[in-house]
Simulated scan of single mutants.
Amino acid sequence: MLRRPVESAQYTSFTLAEHLDRAGIAASIGTVGDALDNALMESTIGLYKTELIKPRRPWRTLPEVELATAEWADWYNHRRLHGEIGHIPPVEYEANYYLTAQKPQVTVTT
């Protein structure tokens, strides 16, 4: 049986693309060398490392890191003030958005 060589980057592999296509899922994958798709994630990971991981090392156990990560994510989303969104936490920004977003109007025709 012939097999395709395994791609070195799992997120851009032909096998993954075919699997997603069969499942009816549209992949969100940028072009090679294009970091625009993951810029937000890279920024968040950088903050996570700077604000939590590096200052509190050395970490002793995986459960210790897992608990600290959950606490950091809660703080990041519910209490950390984000300058780009008006010095409020993301949860508050999202709530404000949905309060002011226009809702589609239902009309009845007879």
Rank of each mutant, 00 (worst) to 15 (best):
T109A: 13
M41K: 05
P63L: 00
E92C: 01
A39I: 00
I25Y: 12
G46Q: 09
V106R: 12
A9R: 14
Q10D: 08
D37R: 04
T109W: 13
Y93K: 03
A27N: 03
Y93N: 05
T15M: 05
K103V: 08
M41H: 15
I85R: 00
E71C: 13
P104A: 03
L2M: 13
H19R: 05
P55M: 07
L2S: 07
D37M: 09
L67M: 13
L2T: 05
I25F: 14
E18S: 07
R4L: 15
S43D: 02
V91M: 03
Q105R: 11
Y93E: 00
A95E: 01
T69Q: 06
P58N: 12
I85M: 00
I29W: 08
E64D: 15
A95Q: 07
Y48T: 05
N38A: 06
E84I: 05
P63Q: 10
L62T: 03
R22H: 14
T44N: 10
H78E: 07
Q10R: 14
R22Y: 13
A68P: 03
A68C: 11
R3P: 14
S28D: 08
L67W: 09
Y98L: 10
L81W: 00
T110H: 13
V106T: 11
T31M: 01
Y97K: 01
D37V: 00
A39Q: 01
R80S: 09
T12S: 14
R3E: 09
A73T: 03
T109Y: 10
T50P: 00
R60Y: 05
K49M: 12
R56N: 12
W72P: 08
E66F: 14
Y93G: 00
R57N: 02
V65A: 09
T15C: 07
S13D: 03
T110C: 13
L40F: 15
P104G: 12
P55T: 03
